[in-house]
Design a protein around this nucleic acid. Sequence first.
DNA 1: ACTTGTGAAGATATTCACAGCG
DNA 2: CGCTGTGAATATCTTCACAAGT
Lengths: 254, 254
Amino acid sequence: MATGRTHRPATRSRGIPEATVARLPLYLRALTALSERSVPTVSSEELAAAAGVNSAKLRKDFSYLGSYGTRGVGYDVEYLVYQISRELGLTQDWPVVIVGIGNLGAALANYGGFASRGFRVAALIDADPEMAGKQVAGITVQHSDDMERIIEENGVSIGVITTPPGVAQQVCERLVAAGVTSILNFAPTVLSVPDGVDVRKVDLSIELQILAFHEQRKAGEEAALTDGSSPVAATRKQSADKGPDGDVPAVMPA
Amino acid sequence: MATGRTHRPATRSRGIPEATVARLPLYLRALTALSERSVPTVSSEELAAAAGVNSAKLRKDFSYLGSYGTRGVGYDVEYLVYQISRELGLTQDWPVVIVGIGNLGAALANYGGFASRGFRVAALIDADPEMAGKQVAGITVQHSDDMERIIEENGVSIGVITTPPGVAQQVCERLVAAGVTSILNFAPTVLSVPDGVDVRKVDLSIELQILAFHEQRKAGEEAALTDGSSPVAATRKQSADKGPDGDVPAVMPA
DNA sequence: ACTTGTGAAGATATTCACAGCG
DNA sequence: CGCTGTGAATATCTTCACAAGT
């Protein structure tokens, strides 16, 4: 290509690795806690422990942001809070809409972590006319007919989808058409979006399944060690009245 | 805290990469949908599209499980559903307790994805005496005084924490002491657990912050002509950057 | 001393590209 | 042919270990 915009992968951050970006909020939370206790400086070792990572990783992460520490001393807490906040774009206000005000949507609306850090719930939207007008977390739920107007009037660029999976894709498309370019999806569906729109998904059942995988492996390891005949391995398995279930067909094609 | 997972099994079949494990539930969901539509076989290309990954990755992932496909044809849907379910440990029943029945806990209790796939909500637990006895999602909430008994009686090994952050660590410790070895943590806290206990965390505010980071970058790119404050001089490494064409359509900024 | 910042090494993950088999 | 399965190449991420500052 000779002219036009430089080809830049949408997911590539400005030199900051994605894995690092994903940890910055973690550091920020730990730093905020230190800040509230008026701790002036912190070493990479201490901060890493508070954030649950190791110190080499933390230092490497910070090195992508710049040299914000002082050798022999550590990092200035307030300064780092500011720098990370700025890097994450939290020094500005992000209006957010939540679409789908069921249990989960209500939980998110009530979630303190939203408001506390640059995010403001600009609107709650639901397709059920019964919901419209009700108050959730002190905010009046609006009907989805008004979705486009709400997004434009509030300059919303981040949308949260907490609808049933069946309507998630279509909600997503309306959000994007109205100007939303970042979506946090709680519906267990793969959303397809045009290039330039970011989607992150939070999937409760996937997390549980990953845990189950490791849990099963633990049980298997124990059984292997105790060589089958010992009852010890059996103690820590699931038990009791097995539910109806029977969901899995034991098909064995050749 | 060194998690001693440096153990490399000599047998080649049991070393499924973590990244692959994390995608298996995705494949499983896509396959289940196909199964319900009575689709008999599926190609890596089709399945990959449905799961939102690329086909090479999917085939590589499946190769860790074994050779379950047929060249020239694709994968048998029912068979794959069974194999992945087994690999993830979903052919057995996993009783789960949810601790902290606020908005989020209630949302999880009502979440259909739980029951549908090997997980059974064995108990809902809350510290508030007012909550005890109430019905949530058809299950009677029990007081946290009984946590240990409930876990032991039901053989629970997976716990979900949806409490306020202040009590999450102490709830975690009680869970672990009672026999729980896998924890899904929704509280915005770093949990410290003994070796051998798995923790996964779901953090709503972190996801939003990551979105904000990318959103900010998008906005910056639009007005990127007078930038001069970037502390990171992007030292391009070997960036021959062959055009991966085909798949990266240019998009018009809305 | 003490702790950061970082090249280099090592470990994982992703993608390519094609041999091999139905 | 078409599509899987996989070694090899690449890219990304983590950890090591120590030089460079304060």
